[in-house]
Structure formats: structure tokens, C-alpha cells
Design a binder for these strands. Structure first.
Lengths: 211, 211, 211, 211
DNA sequence: TATGAATGAGGTTTCATTCAT
DNA sequence: AATGAATGAAACCTCATTCAT
């Protein structure tokens, strides 16, 4: 009896719960510390204290601080990608999908400031990032955006003199700079307005239907 | 005679020569170190060694490492602004000016990788930056871009349903993300192509002549 | 049986034993260094070496050198107060108690030169001292002396035209200057003689019985 | 002619004016810095800045910081001694002289807080002080007090079972502790009250006329 | 006499990391 | 799995001091 109950409980647990409690506390601690401080100003001892965990324990789970940061980003990103996949289901047309995707990133940046902070401000200046697992996720994701654009070009929704790579960069950069003031100065980020404004600038032009 | 020559020599001296040699060496040292390393991995002793100067001397001129970084950025930015002002002279029309401005930033990012690195990767994650003199320059500059856009709207070159603030952010973010791969992975950045691509995406649409 | 012994041993341990060994060694190290050097000439590395402990460890336990000094004083003072309380038990009359108290401080200054050095020479010139825990102990102690004097006035042992505050200062200052040459030049301090001389000057006069 | 004028001018100048201006400025600077800070927290560069003088110049005049401090004390003390000598003129009786002397020190401590700070708080913890010229002045002065007491004993004004050395220490220590709170916490010091209180406690008793 | 520039040496402080329990 | 204690190395920083001018 007892055993059955146990198994059941474990089966129900979301994946992250499978990590030992110390591991979870440490990841949580970094997340919450990143709300107040920049990454470089956060020390192991900050993290251990916030996590309510011994400093030495961290070494059981993480190679170094950057490694931990990348793990945190990875977790965020996986969450985000799952949500996104769902969001895009049932949407027709490359432009519509792009619009939704834009809204989705901005929305995530608004709801998870730390996520945005990490991706916009903390990982890029560190070379090791580009060898990390989390960067691979980002790259895959970026690739998918490019493919979406190429799909749009094939279907004729997007002008065929547009370079997919350049457009992707323009979209990502625009989103970033539209969100950045909100992220840095803790101001409101309005996904609807920002998406609307950005698409107004890009889509009517990019699209072939009007030119 | 001698006296006249003297006056002339003093008058000719560029501004940077007014700093004591140690000061100049230190600034140069950080510039060159930033080519190889990220800012946080650079230590005082790195800088002092590279500059061929005593560590203690750095404190005579700079409060701390961030302060030095901001000073370096400031110097770059002033150089850049001077060049830009010249570049924009004699150009007619807001869109043409914007195009030139875009080219100008991309070009600067290409020629001065360190400049781009600092501005894209190193300063933004540090709160103190936003109180620095160099940030004030950046803000002034951003303001001017917005005014350029507003001018375009007034003259009818730019659609009047475009929000200047949002457009400015889109432009700056686009530039940044178009240059970023080049800056990070030390690849070529082609100002002409990038400018062309970006303007193609934005201008035909923003402009009123077609809608 | 074994268990009983254990409990007993733990119960007997003096409080200081509860600190980790490194902490104790550091405090001891400063105590012994103060015998030879003035506080300002003592460095962290002196302390660490003397304690046979890593320099960094000091920061685990003490905020800074002054903080450590105050902790050392605190320990001394607590020891002293405990002894004093015992010494005063069973003594009748405010003047007799004062005499015993005077003897007690002089005696402590003689036996613990470092204690006297700290209190007479090292803490007072540092403003932070007056916010420290150890200063609070000193103040409480000084207050008790004043109350003893007031008691003497109430009981008629001490002239009622004497200001308790001034008398307290006179007593403390006298003690200090009587001990100072001994403390500074490492000469003998004779508690009996000094107490006798001081009381001769003060008590016959302060007392009401003769005036 | 010129020479005569010169000599005259020099002769008229007060003694301190004979020092070069840099010297004077440096001494003044330390005096004024001691009002705000403890001696150990004052650096050469503080002093040079306050004096409006180059750091290197200090080495022309002073061996080290302590040496400078002792020079400052010396200057104060000489001023004080000159005043005191005048004050004591025409006063009859050892006790009256002592009373005046007590008043005089307390008064000086009130008017020149820095003087009191130096003597009560800053010099004693430094061994080198006891080899300094300024300490010699202090010792001479203390000796004179002892002689004054001995004179009082000889003339019968003071009880002959009083030890002059002990009484001198009691007087000096009492004065110090009566002034100390005022000096440390920048409170008012009232020479009249303090002198009155101290003498009330000591003199009626010490004197033979009543016993 | 006085200054600006620079230095050397060592003090202070921080932190990632290890290890026995 | 987790902790408490301690360490080593290197960073940061300060300051007294010197020297050419």
C-alpha cells in the first residue's frame, strides 16, 4: 500500500522535482538574486545563503557559476519553447506566426524579467556561453525563425528580395531594444502595443500584398 | 619668433595629449585588452602590465575599473560623434540622414570592434553605467535620432502613424543584432550590405509615398 | 554510563569553547600581539601568522580589525565584570564598595596589561567604538559606579554637595593616570598602594564625618 | 639699506612666520583635519590637499606623520605654557596655584579641542612619542606640578602624608576624565564648574587646615 | 621652495574551492 | 545529501615615498 502511494506521488511530480532539494534551492536562489543584482556581482556565498544551503554543496551539482547560469537559462528557455509551440498551433500564415512569435517573446520578457535579463545582458559577453547547451537551444530557436521567414517567402507572403537572415536579426534586435528599457529600469512592458508597433513598421512593407 | 612657435605648438596639441602619459597608457591598455578578453576577466594587474605602468597609478586617475571602462567608452563615443556630425553635413532629407546614420554606426562597429563590444556587451548589465557621463552622451545621441524621425514625420517623409520612440528602438536594436555576430565571432561586418538590407525593410514601408 | 559522562563534559565547557577553534586562535593572537605592539601597527597578516590560521578566515568571523579589537575588549570586560561582582559581595557600605572597586580595576590593569592598554589607549580615539557592544558594557559599568556613589549620598556616607557624575569621572581618571605609567613603560603596578593613596585623597574628604 | 630693512622685517615677524609658507600650511592642515578625523585615518594626501600643497613637499619638513603630529603638539604646548606662566604670576599659595593650573588646563582643553584630543587620545599609544621633544615638554610640565605640590607640603598647605607623585597623577587623570566626554562628543566643557567640583573633592581634604 | 608624475611595497578583502565529518 | 571549518590565490586598494623639473 504505502509503496503504491509513493510511486504515484513520484509519477505525478513535474520533472524538476526529481532533482535533490539542494539542487532546486540553488537554481531558485540564482533566479531570485538575478532580480536584484547583475550576475557578476553575485557570489557563491550569496547563492548559498539565499538558498539556505551550504556553500560546498554547490560543487556537487555545478562546475562553476557560469555553468549554473546557463542551466538556469536552459530551464527558462525550455519552459518558453514549450509555451511557444502551443501558442503557434493552429495559426495560419507565416506573417501571423511571426507576429505571434514576436508577441510571445515580448510577453515572456515582461513576465520573466530575469529570463530577459539573462538573455539580453548576462550571457553574451562570456565566450563560454557559445559552447553551452543553452546556446544550442537559442540557436535552434533562431533557426526556426529563419525557416518561418523562408516559408513566408516561398508562400509569397514575404517579398523575395528580403534576406531571411537579415530579417531575423532585425526582428530579434528590435524586440530586444523595445524591451530593454523595461528590463533595465523595471518599467512596464506592454506586449500588445510593442508587437503592434513593430509589425506596423515591418510587415506592411515586407509583405508583397501592397507593393 | 621662438615665442610664436611655442604658442603654435601648444595650440596644435590634440586634447588627449593634455592627459599625463600614464593616463593615456592606461586607457590604451584597456582598449587593447578588450579585444581579447571580456571586461570582467580583465584585472588591474593585466591593465597595469599592458600599460607598462604601476598598479597604484591607476587609482590616481580612475575611481575603479568600471569608471575606467566608462571613460574609454566616452572617448570612443566623442570621436564617433564628431565623425558623425561631419558625415551628416550636406545631406538632405530625414530618411537620407537616417540611412547615413545607420551606415555610420555599423561602420564604426566594424572599424572599432572594441567600441561595439563595450556598448553592446559590457556596460548595460552594470547599473552604475546609467549614472555615468558616457551614458549621458548615448542618451543625447539617441534623443537626436528621435528628433530626426520627428523631423521626417513633420516634413511628411515618414508616415505619421509611426511612433518615433518605437522606430528609434527598432533601428538601434536592428543595427545591434545585425552587427552582433560579427562583433562576437570576429567575422566581417559589411556596412554597405547591412545598411542596404535594413533600409529596404524599414524605409519603403515607413515612407508615405507608397501607402 | 558513557553517555552520562559526555553530557557532563559538554555541560562543563566554558562558553568560549563554543566558538570554532579558528575564532579562538584569532582572538588569542590579537591579545598576545597587543602586548608587544600598538594596535595600528598590527596587520591582518601578523594576526593570521600568530594564530596559525589563514588570513581569509578572519573575515568569516570579524568584520574588520576594529571589530576584532572590540570583541577582544568585550571578552576581557565580561571576565572582569564577573570577577568584580564576586569581589563586591558581602561588602558593606558605599565607600567600602568603592574602595574595593578601585582596587579591583587597578588589580585588573596590573594583571592584564593588554586589557588596560586597550581601554586606556586604543579604543577611545576611534569613533566606531562608541557604537560597539563593548562600549555599552563600559557604559553600564560606569553607570553602576555612579549609582554606588548616589547610594553613598543617600545613606549619608558621602557629602551631599558632591556631584556623582563628577566624582565618578575623578575616580576613573585617577585610576587611569595612576596605572598609565605602569602600563606604558611596563613597570610594576601595586594595587594596594595605589588604592590606599587614592582613597586617602578622596575619601576622608568626601566623607561627611569630618567636615 | 636694504639689509637693514630686511633685518627689521624679520625681527618683527612673529616666530612662526619664520617657517616657509608650505611648512605653516602643512601644520595648519593637520590641526584642522584633527578636528574631524582621528589621526590614524589622516593620510599625507589628506594633509597635502587640505594644505593646498604638493605631497612631496611634506618630506622637506617632516620625517613622518608622527613627527608632524609631535610638532603640532609642541606648538600647542608652548603656547599653552606661555599662557600658563602668565596666569600663575602673582598668585599666592600652592593650593591657589594648583587651582589656577587646573582651571588653566581645562580651559585650554575647552578652547583648543584639537590640543586636548592629541594629548588625551592620539600620542600615548605610540612608543615613539616618549622620545619626542614634545614629550619632554610634557614631562617638564608634570615635574613642575609635582614641585608645586612639594612646595605646598613644605609650607604646610598640603598634608604631609600625601605622596606628591600620586597626587599629581590624580589631578591630571581627573582633569582628563572630566574633559574627555566633552572632547570626544563635542559637548560643552565648563572650566569654572569642573575646576570647582574637582577642587571641592580634593582640596578640603588634602589641606591640613581641617584635619 | 614647490610641483606633477610615478612607484613599490604591503595591507585589506574577496572568493572559489576542498575536506573531514 | 549536506555541513562547518578552513584554505590559497589573487584580486583590489592605499599610501608613504622618490625623482625629475
Amino acid at each position: 500500500m504505502v509503496r503504491a502511494v509513493r510511486l504515484k506521488r513520484i509519477a505525478r511530480q513535474p520533472k524538476s522535482e526529481l532533482y535533490p532539494p539542494g539542487h532546486i534551492k540553488i537554481v531558485q536562489a540564482l533566479r531570485s538574486l538575478l532580480m536584484e543584482k547583475e550576475f557578476n556581482a553575485i557570489t557563491w556565498s550569496d547563492i548559498a545563503q539565499t538558498a539556505g544551503v551550504n556553500e560546498g554543496l554547490i560543487y556537487k551539482y555545478f562546475k562553476d557559476k557560469r555553468n549554473l547560469l546557463h542551466k538556469v537559462l536552459e530551464a527558462y528557455f525550455k519552459e518558453y519553447l514549450a509555451k511557444l509551440e502551443n501558442d503557434l498551433k493552429g495559426i495560419d500564415g507565416a506573417l501571423n506566426k511571426l507576429r505571434k512569435l514576436i508577441w510571445s517573446i515580448i510577453n515572456a520578457s515582461n513576465e520573466d524579467r530575469v529570463f530577459a535579463k539573462i538573455i539580453f545582458l548576462e550571457v553574451r559577453n562570456f565566450p563560454g556561453y557559445f559552447e553551452s547547451q543553452s546556446y544550442r537551444l537559442v540557436k535552434d530557436y533562431a533557426k526556426k525563425i529563419k525557416e518561418l521567414i523562408e516559408e513566408g517567402i516561398r508562400t509569397g507572403e514575404i517579398r523575395n528580395d528580403i534576406s531571411p537572415w537579415h530579417l531575423r536579426q532585425v526582428i530579434l534586435g528590435s524586440i530586444e531594444h523595445l524591451c530593454l528599457p523595461g528590463v533595465i529600469f523595471n518599467q512596464e512592458i506592454d506586449p500588445d502595443t510593442l508587437t503592434e508597433e513593430l509589425c506596423k513598421m515591418l510587415f506592411t512593407n515586407i509583405g508583397t500584398h501592397r507593393n
